[in-house]
Simulated scan of single mutants.
Amino acid sequence: MSENIAIVAHATGDLRVDPTPEPVPAADEAVVEIAYGGVCGSDLHYWLHGAAGASILRAPMVLGHEVVGTVLTAAADGSGPTVGTSVAVHPGTPHDVDGVVWPADRPNLAPGATYLGSAAHFPHCEGAFARRVALPGRMLRPLPAGLSLLGAALAEPAAVAWHGVERAGDVRGKRVVVIGAGPIGLLVVAVALHHGASEVIATDIADGPRSRASALGAARVLDARASQDIAELAADVVIESSGTVPGLHAAVDAAVRGGVVVLLGLQRNGDVDAPLAQAITRELDLRGSFRFNGEIDDVLAALADGSLKVDGVVTHVVPAADALDAFTTAKDSEASGKVLLDFTA
Score class of each variant (00 low, 15 high):
residue 1 M to Y: 05
residue 4 N to I: 09
residue 10 H to S: 12
residue 10 H to F: 14
residue 14 D to T: 11
residue 30 A to E: 07
residue 33 E to K: 13
residue 33 E to F: 04
residue 34 I to F: 07
residue 44 L to F: 08
residue 55 S to V: 07
residue 56 I to C: 01
residue 60 P to L: 02
residue 64 G to I: 02
residue 64 G to N: 09
residue 68 V to I: 11
residue 70 T to R: 15
residue 80 G to I: 12
residue 96 D to Q: 09
residue 97 V to F: 03
residue 98 D to Q: 13
residue 99 G to A: 05
residue 100 V to Y: 08
residue 100 V to Q: 14
residue 108 N to V: 08
residue 109 L to A: 02
residue 109 L to K: 01
residue 110 A to D: 08
residue 114 T to L: 10
residue 121 H to K: 11
residue 124 H to W: 01
residue 126 E to I: 12
residue 139 M to S: 10
residue 140 L to D: 10
residue 151 G to H: 02
residue 163 H to Y: 13
residue 169 G to F: 05
residue 171 V to M: 05
residue 172 R to T: 15
residue 176 V to D: 05
residue 178 V to P: 06
residue 187 L to Y: 04
residue 188 V to W: 10
residue 210 R to V: 01
residue 212 R to Y: 06
residue 223 D to H: 09
residue 223 D to R: 03
residue 231 A to C: 05
residue 233 L to Y: 07
residue 235 A to H: 09
residue 241 S to L: 02
residue 245 V to K: 02
residue 249 H to L: 04
residue 260 V to R: 13
residue 260 V to H: 14
residue 261 V to H: 07
residue 266 L to N: 13
residue 271 D to W: 13
residue 287 R to S: 00
residue 288 G to L: 03
residue 290 F to S: 14
residue 293 N to E: 11
residue 297 D to S: 14
residue 298 D to V: 00
residue 301 A to Q: 10
residue 311 D to P: 01
residue 330 A to F: 06
residue 337 G to S: 03
residue 338 K to A: 02
